[in-house]
Computed example of a mutant assay.
Amino acid sequence: MSVVVLGTGMHPWGKWGRPFAEYGVAAAREALRDAGVDWRDVGFAVGAATIRNGYPGFVAGATYARALGWSGARIASCYAACASGAQAIDIARTRILAGLCDVALVVGADATPKGFFTPVGGDRPDDPDWLRFRLLGATNPAYFGLYARRRMALYGSTPEDFAAVKVKNALAGSLNPLARYRKPVTAEEVLASPMVADPLRLMDICATSDGGAALVLASAAYARRRGVSGAVRLAAVSTVTPVFPSTVLELPEFATDSSVAVPPPERPFRAALAHAAYEEAGIGPREVSFAEVYDLSTALELDWVEDVGLCPPGEAGKLLRSGDTALGGRVPVNPSGGLASFGEAIPAQAIAQVCELTRQLRGRAGARQVEGARVGLAVNQGLFGHGSAVVATR
């Protein structure tokens, strides 16, 4: 048995100032229309939770089911930081594979506050996330900057390399009607933007955004009964956890006395996520046609390109400069425009990545279409051991 994507839907990213459920419901209805499926035919609905939008955000599955109309469908809600959407996909896919339903709806949406993310829930001295901000002063851009500095020290990457990532992704985003930022930029504009966390400037770092995304998943047998042929297949979903001595915060070179005494794992966490998906799908990185990677910063995109095996360590800059990761290149990276063009809407973003995989593999991506796309990879990572990799094929 296999699971296919019957429909995709998204609410455009931006700062709209409306309740998150509006974005999720709009995306869900679009996905249902795309699939040609009535909401009452959905046997299972799972909502990726948002923790910044009150109780309805925590019980997102019920929030969306109620808004769409109580139908008796089974529901679930899940939260896994930046991998929330992929965990929701995994839950729905697993239920279909188990034969417990034929059709499932996956929805994620967020309404974000102004500025960078802050801890949720007040003072919590037993919470590592709260401690990260209060004791280390490590806002998200701070550790993005640490990763960038490490890359510069190890591989000689430069601010000009980071700016080139933004230029590439902004060009792709300018072709995506769902993106928040739809204007090409120059390297000079990136390098002239305000410094936020040295060496990263404002245009090196993704924004926080409102947005929504949804998928209708089904068993391949159900798709065949509906006369659907050539549907995009979810070949793998990886949600593996780190292997000790990976640390809770996953900051570069952050270690304890106990962890430094233990040999490092065979693969770093991000690489392990991708390779577990490759193994499940029965492919290797050479077969990837394009990839959606989690560009929280321009420097992190270069790390991801290496971690998922598109090139050896230290050579992502060379791949970038040769044009291989641009639209029209050998293996385009972030043809959607990435987070550089969308910003973070945490419960929706991994689902949005799979929406892009599906559109590309269907050949419906318009001006940003990857020619001959047959295998797409989507990867992301959150703190506390959460992350995901999804392989989709046609």
Rank of each mutant, 00 (worst) to 15 (best):
V308T: 10
L310E: 03
L320S: 04
E306N: 12
L320A: 06
T298L: 02
D303S: 11
T325L: 10
E301N: 09
V308D: 00
T298G: 03
E306W: 07
S297N: 11
T298F: 00
V305M: 05
L319K: 04
E301Q: 13
W304G: 06
G323E: 11
A316N: 05
D303P: 09
E292P: 06
E306G: 10
P312K: 14
L319W: 00
E306H: 10
L300T: 09
P313K: 15
D295Y: 04
K318T: 15
L320R: 02
S289Q: 08
D307P: 12
D324N: 09
A291T: 05
V305I: 15
C311P: 09
S322T: 13
A299I: 12
P313C: 11
E306C: 13
D307G: 13
G323L: 07
E301D: 08
V308F: 00
L319M: 14
A316R: 00
A291R: 00
G309D: 05
G317M: 11
P312G: 15
V293Q: 06
E301R: 02
G317V: 11
G314Y: 01
L296K: 08
V308W: 00
S297W: 07
S297Y: 03
L302P: 00
P313W: 08
L300F: 08
L296W: 02
D303K: 09
L302I: 06
G314V: 05
D295H: 04
L320G: 01
G323F: 06
G317Q: 12
P313D: 08
V305H: 00
R286I: 14
F290P: 05
V288S: 02
G317K: 04
P312D: 14
D307Q: 15
C311N: 07
E292V: 08
L296I: 15
L300H: 07
S297D: 12
A316I: 01
V288D: 02
D324W: 04
R321C: 13
